[in-house]
Computed example of a mutant assay.
Amino acid sequence: MDKIEGTRLYLRTFEPKDEDTLFQLYRQPAVCKYLLHEPWTPTNSAEAFQKKYAQKRLSHQTALSLAVVYDHRVIGDLSVWRTGQPDCVEIGYTFDPAYSGQGFAQEALHLLINWLFRTQQVHRIQATLDARNTPSANCCRRIGMREEAHFIQDWWSKGQWTDSLVFGLLAAEWAQK
């Protein structure tokens, strides 16, 4: 996959040099609070990074993980995987809190969505997130995704039942923007 360039940042697959930066991001409990996994540790970080590093192409069998690069530094992580429905994908994203509130997530997701709809023939994109993650839900709304569902205590996460929000966006809707 080629680099996807935006105004301030670009997206690319992960490189070996990104391992420590990703460890510094995912070792933070606040970053992992609403994610499905616990913070990375020195013991498990190499294996966790290798999974992301290996995800270089979106296919029906493989997910795609992309580094969000700003000013020569990885500030975020985007993931895309097929849902099992024809031409439908789900996206996930994590950003370094030091860069929050500056529109980087919006810009990166906009680039990703454009790429998915224009080059991957995707019909629908969805994002499922922990309902307590208000900044993430707000980001979905800002990029034009619609809230489609609020499931009550549907996911057991880190020792408690949590609610989930599902956001969706169709290619036809994106084309009208």
Rank of each mutant, 00 (worst) to 15 (best):
A63P: 03
W155Q: 10
Q153G: 04
Q85N: 15
Y70L: 15
G159A: 06
D163C: 12
H110L: 08
R82Q: 11
D18H: 11
H37W: 00
Y26N: 00
T83V: 11
D2T: 07
R82I: 03
W155L: 12
R124V: 08
G159H: 04
S65Q: 05
M1N: 06
N44W: 00
F117T: 09
K3C: 07
L58A: 09
V69E: 11
Q120F: 05
A98H: 13
D20K: 14
R57Y: 05
Q61R: 08
L169N: 02
T62K: 13
D77V: 11
V80Q: 01
Q126M: 13
F14E: 07
E5S: 15
A46F: 03
G84L: 05
A137F: 06
A48Y: 04
R57D: 14
V122R: 02
L64Y: 01
D130T: 07
G6Q: 05
G168Y: 03
W155A: 10
W155R: 13
A105W: 01
I75K: 01
R118M: 14
E47G: 12
W81P: 01
L111Y: 04
K51N: 02
D18S: 14
Y26Q: 00
F167I: 10
W40C: 00
S136E: 07
C139I: 15
Q85K: 14
L109H: 02
F167N: 08
S45W: 00
Q106G: 12
L116E: 09
E5Q: 14
A127N: 10
K177E: 09
W81H: 13
D20A: 11
E90K: 03
M145N: 02
G159R: 02
A137W: 04
R132Q: 15
V80W: 00
L169I: 09
L58R: 06
S65A: 15
V89F: 01
T7L: 14
A63Y: 01
T13F: 07
Y10E: 09
E90R: 05
R8Q: 11
L64C: 04
S45E: 02
H123V: 13
N44I: 00
A172V: 15
Q24L: 08
D96Y: 06
A172C: 10
D154H: 11
T128W: 05
G76C: 03
V89T: 03
G101A: 13
R57W: 05
C32N: 01
Y70R: 08
G159D: 06
C140N: 04
V89S: 01
W115F: 08
H150S: 08
F167V: 11
E90A: 02
A175Q: 14
A175F: 09
F104M: 09
D77F: 04
R12P: 09
E19S: 15
K56G: 12
T94N: 04
N138I: 13
R132D: 15
P86N: 07
L36W: 00
L129P: 09
E47S: 12
F49E: 04
A127P: 08
A127R: 09
R73L: 10
R73P: 02
P39E: 00
N133M: 07
D77E: 12
P97V: 10
